[in-house]
């Protein structure tokens, strides 16, 4: 009986979450904003009226979407985000673990981290362009920086927050240092690593977009910036929305992988 109860309960919940009043209110709010946006653009309200109207955006979209240039921009930006992000994990995870597990390394490395971290990643763009031989490399480096500090700090936090009882308990079962690393430290740090990755992915997109505007001639960020320079204003909005979708897809992937990697965190 309790099983059936549970079932009907979750079905009921699903139905409610789709058809409940909050959902309708949300739809109303978004439609109202769209209408207001269109209206503001038509009557040239100050400031907000300068945003190209939804109708103009839709018009531009229908032609832009069939150009290779548009999809190429997607690809280029994704490639940069992906390379920078993966590099940040490959380097950041071992650094974080090393610093988390060895007090010496932590004392040695932490001040450097704390000195470099407050510098906004974009402030690195010129230095990066000077240093790296190709623009692509400098883009990826700045992207890497965006995610690197978050990864290291989250792992560091994760390792130092491991409940000492787990380690003691493992020791009392006769675990070696190797066992403790692979079977306790690593899984126990996984949730903070996932948090770090989610945050890092957000920062990565921010950085890529701005870096593309500042110092590159390709990618979604550049597409948006060029539309502004060329006076093709509706494309600015398309660029922004595309970036939003791209960022959303990336964080969804991270969230999905995080969920898979840490099944014990699921709420029953």
């Amino acid at each position: 009986m309790s099983g059936r109860n549970k079932n009907s309960n979750s079905l009921g919940k699903l139905g409610k979450s789709i058809f409940n009043i909050s959902f309708y209110r949300g739809v109303v709010a978004i439609i109202a904003s769209l209408i207001f946006w269109e209206f503001a653009a038509r009557v040239h309200l100050p400031v907000i009226g300068m945003i190209p109207a939804p109708s103009a955006v839709a018009g531009s979209l229908s032609s832009l979407i069939f150009t290779g240039y548009y999809w190429e921009s997607w690809y280029v930006s994704f490639e940069r985000v992906f390379s920078g992000f993966v590099m940040a994990q490959i380097i950041g995870i071992p650094v974080g673990l090393l610093m988390g597990m060895s007090r010496k390394f932590r004392d040695l490395g932490f001040p450097i981290l704390e000195v470099l971290r407050p510098i906004p990643p974009l402030a690195w763009v010129p230095a990066s362009v000077i240093f790296w031989p190709t623009p692509q490399m400098s883009m990826v480096f700045v992207t890497f920086l965006g995610a690197f500090f978050t990864t290291v700090l989250n792992i560091l936090g994760g390792v130092s927050n491991i409940d000492i009882r787990y380690i003691r308990s493992a020791r009392s079962f006769g675990a070696s240092n190797k066992d403790i690393f692979w079977r306790i430290v690593l899984p126990a740090t996984l949730p903070s690593l996932c948090t770090g990755m989610t945050v890092g992915m957000g920062i990565t997109w921010e950085v890529v977009v701005a870096a593309e505007m500042i110092a590159s001639r390709s990618g979604l960020g550049f597409l948006t910036w060029r539309s502004y320079v060329a006076g093709d204003y509706p494309v600015i909005v398309i660029g922004m929305i595309s970036i939003g979708i791209a960022g959303y897809i990336s964080s969804s992937i991270i969230r999905l992988l995080s969920g898979r990697a840490t099944p014990w965190l699921k709420i029953i």
Partner: peptide, 8 residues
């Protein structure tokens, strides 16, 4: 509780 749904 929840007369339409779970009916507890």
């Amino acid at each position: 509780f929840d007369p339409e749904g779970a009916h507890v």
